[in-house]
Amino acid sequence: MSYIALAINLLLGTSALAWGYYDGGYPNVSSAILAIGLFWGISIWRRWRWFAKIGFIAYTLSAAVGLWLNLPFGWMLAGGVGGLLVYDLSAFIYRLRFAAPGEDVKRLSLAHLARLGLLIVLTLIFSSIAMLWQSAFSFEWAVFLGLASVWGLSLLVRWMLRK
Protein backbone atom coordinates (compact mmCIF):
# COMPACT_ATOMS: atom_id res chain seq x y z
CA MET A 1 0.00 0.00 0.00
CA SER A 2 2.72 2.46 0.99
CA TYR A 3 4.81 1.45 -2.01
CA ILE A 4 1.91 2.17 -4.35
CA ALA A 5 1.34 5.57 -2.69
CA LEU A 6 5.04 6.31 -3.01
CA ALA A 7 5.12 5.38 -6.69
CA ILE A 8 1.98 7.43 -7.46
CA ASN A 9 3.34 10.48 -5.65
CA LEU A 10 6.69 10.24 -7.35
CA LEU A 11 5.02 9.90 -10.72
CA LEU A 12 2.54 12.73 -10.15
CA GLY A 13 5.07 15.08 -8.57
CA THR A 14 7.65 14.53 -11.30
CA SER A 15 5.06 14.77 -14.10
CA ALA A 16 3.54 17.94 -12.67
CA LEU A 17 6.88 19.71 -12.33
CA ALA A 18 8.14 18.46 -15.71
CA TRP A 19 4.93 19.41 -17.50
CA GLY A 20 4.87 22.83 -15.81
CA TYR A 21 8.40 23.60 -17.04
CA TYR A 22 7.80 22.07 -20.47
CA ASP A 23 4.60 24.03 -20.91
CA GLY A 24 6.35 27.22 -19.81
CA GLY A 25 9.03 26.82 -22.48
CA TYR A 26 11.83 25.18 -20.49
CA PRO A 27 12.17 21.70 -22.04
CA ASN A 28 15.76 21.24 -20.77
CA VAL A 29 14.73 21.83 -17.16
CA SER A 30 11.80 19.51 -17.76
CA SER A 31 14.17 16.77 -18.92
CA ALA A 32 16.42 17.36 -15.90
CA ILE A 33 13.42 16.98 -13.56
CA LEU A 34 12.44 13.76 -15.32
CA ALA A 35 15.99 12.51 -14.89
CA ILE A 36 15.97 13.38 -11.16
CA GLY A 37 12.61 11.65 -10.81
CA LEU A 38 13.94 8.55 -12.54
CA PHE A 39 17.03 8.52 -10.35
CA TRP A 40 14.88 9.01 -7.25
CA GLY A 41 12.83 5.99 -8.28
CA ILE A 42 16.01 3.93 -8.72
CA SER A 43 17.33 5.13 -5.35
CA ILE A 44 14.14 3.95 -3.64
CA TRP A 45 14.45 0.57 -5.36
CA ARG A 46 18.15 0.30 -4.42
CA ARG A 47 17.50 1.66 -0.90
CA TRP A 48 19.82 4.64 -1.24
CA ARG A 49 18.19 6.57 1.57
CA TRP A 50 20.44 9.60 1.22
CA PHE A 51 18.94 10.58 -2.12
CA ALA A 52 15.49 11.29 -0.62
CA LYS A 53 16.84 14.47 0.99
CA ILE A 54 18.43 15.64 -2.25
CA GLY A 55 15.29 14.84 -4.24
CA PHE A 56 13.10 16.66 -1.73
CA ILE A 57 15.27 19.79 -1.80
CA ALA A 58 15.52 19.64 -5.61
CA TYR A 59 11.75 19.34 -6.09
CA THR A 60 10.92 22.12 -3.61
CA LEU A 61 13.48 24.51 -5.05
CA SER A 62 12.40 23.63 -8.62
CA ALA A 63 8.81 24.47 -7.69
CA ALA A 64 9.89 27.75 -6.07
CA VAL A 65 12.00 28.73 -9.09
CA GLY A 66 9.11 27.79 -11.37
CA LEU A 67 6.81 30.11 -9.45
CA TRP A 68 9.40 32.87 -9.64
CA LEU A 69 9.40 32.31 -13.43
CA ASN A 70 5.60 32.68 -13.34
CA LEU A 71 4.88 29.08 -14.25
CA PRO A 72 1.39 27.77 -13.36
CA PHE A 73 0.92 27.56 -9.55
CA GLY A 74 -1.05 24.31 -9.69
CA TRP A 75 1.71 22.29 -11.36
CA MET A 76 4.40 23.73 -9.12
CA LEU A 77 2.40 23.10 -5.93
CA ALA A 78 1.69 19.54 -7.07
CA GLY A 79 5.42 19.03 -7.71
CA GLY A 80 6.42 20.48 -4.33
CA VAL A 81 3.81 18.45 -2.43
CA GLY A 82 4.79 15.34 -4.42
CA GLY A 83 8.43 15.81 -3.39
CA LEU A 84 7.44 16.21 0.26
CA LEU A 85 5.27 13.10 0.20
CA VAL A 86 7.91 10.96 -1.51
CA TYR A 87 10.50 12.18 1.03
CA ASP A 88 8.17 11.25 3.88
CA LEU A 89 7.04 7.92 2.45
CA SER A 90 10.54 6.73 1.62
CA ALA A 91 11.55 7.23 5.27
CA PHE A 92 8.32 5.57 6.41
CA ILE A 93 8.90 2.54 4.19
CA TYR A 94 12.38 2.20 5.65
CA ARG A 95 10.89 2.11 9.17
CA LEU A 96 8.16 -0.24 8.00
CA ARG A 97 10.77 -2.90 7.21
CA PHE A 98 11.03 -3.55 10.94
CA ALA A 99 7.30 -4.05 11.45
CA ALA A 100 5.87 -7.52 11.83
CA PRO A 101 4.37 -8.53 8.47
CA GLY A 102 0.59 -8.56 8.42
CA GLU A 103 -1.51 -6.64 10.87
CA ASP A 104 1.14 -4.18 12.05
CA VAL A 105 2.17 -3.15 8.53
CA LYS A 106 -1.44 -2.66 7.49
CA ARG A 107 -2.34 -0.59 10.56
CA LEU A 108 0.76 1.58 10.36
CA SER A 109 0.35 2.15 6.61
CA LEU A 110 -3.32 3.07 6.91
CA ALA A 111 -2.68 5.50 9.76
CA HIS A 112 0.25 7.07 7.95
CA LEU A 113 -1.62 7.46 4.65
CA ALA A 114 -4.62 8.92 6.48
CA ARG A 115 -2.34 11.54 8.06
CA LEU A 116 -0.86 12.31 4.63
CA GLY A 117 -4.37 12.55 3.18
CA LEU A 118 -5.26 15.10 5.83
CA LEU A 119 -2.12 17.02 4.98
CA ILE A 120 -3.05 17.10 1.28
CA VAL A 121 -6.60 18.24 1.98
CA LEU A 122 -5.45 21.02 4.31
CA THR A 123 -2.79 22.05 1.80
CA LEU A 124 -5.40 22.35 -0.96
CA ILE A 125 -7.72 24.38 1.27
CA PHE A 126 -5.05 26.74 2.51
CA SER A 127 -3.43 27.10 -0.91
CA SER A 128 -6.78 27.98 -2.48
CA ILE A 129 -7.36 30.58 0.22
CA ALA A 130 -3.85 31.93 -0.30
CA MET A 131 -4.34 32.21 -4.08
CA LEU A 132 -7.64 34.01 -3.64
CA TRP A 133 -5.98 36.38 -1.19
CA GLN A 134 -3.04 36.94 -3.59
CA SER A 135 -4.39 40.25 -4.92
CA ALA A 136 -4.30 41.83 -1.45
CA PHE A 137 -0.58 41.06 -0.88
CA SER A 138 1.02 44.42 -0.06
CA PHE A 139 4.17 45.75 1.61
CA GLU A 140 2.47 45.91 5.04
CA TRP A 141 1.46 42.27 4.75
CA ALA A 142 5.01 41.36 3.76
CA VAL A 143 6.42 43.10 6.87
CA PHE A 144 3.84 41.36 9.06
CA LEU A 145 4.60 37.97 7.55
CA GLY A 146 8.33 38.63 7.90
CA LEU A 147 7.96 39.31 11.64
CA ALA A 148 5.64 36.34 11.99
CA SER A 149 8.14 34.05 10.32
CA VAL A 150 10.99 35.29 12.56
CA TRP A 151 8.80 34.52 15.58
CA GLY A 152 7.90 31.13 14.07
CA LEU A 153 11.54 30.39 13.41
CA SER A 154 12.48 31.13 17.01
CA LEU A 155 9.65 28.86 18.21
CA LEU A 156 10.82 26.09 15.94
CA VAL A 157 14.45 26.40 17.05
CA ARG A 158 13.34 26.29 20.70
CA TRP A 159 11.22 23.21 19.99
CA MET A 160 14.07 21.46 18.23
CA LEU A 161 16.51 22.25 21.02
CA ARG A 162 14.07 21.01 23.64
CA LYS A 163 13.48 17.77 21.78
Partner: peptide, 21 residues
Protein backbone atom coordinates in the same frame (compact mmCIF):
# COMPACT_ATOMS: atom_id res chain seq x y z
CA UNK B 1 12.12 34.49 2.82
CA UNK B 2 12.13 34.03 -0.97
CA UNK B 3 8.40 34.86 -1.13
CA UNK B 4 8.85 37.97 1.00
CA UNK B 5 11.92 39.08 -0.92
CA UNK B 6 10.30 38.60 -4.33
CA UNK B 7 6.83 39.84 -3.27
CA UNK B 8 5.34 36.65 -4.70
CA UNK B 9 2.51 35.22 -2.64
CA UNK B 10 2.55 32.02 -4.71
CA UNK B 11 6.00 31.16 -3.29
CA UNK B 12 4.59 31.80 0.19
CA UNK B 13 1.68 29.53 -0.68
CA UNK B 14 4.20 26.83 -1.64
CA UNK B 15 5.41 26.94 1.97
CA UNK B 16 1.95 25.92 3.25
CA UNK B 17 2.40 22.12 2.90
CA UNK B 18 5.76 22.30 4.63
CA UNK B 19 4.33 24.41 7.45
CA UNK B 20 1.44 21.99 7.88
CA UNK B 21 3.82 19.03 7.80
Amino acid sequence: LAGLASFQSSILALAIPLALY
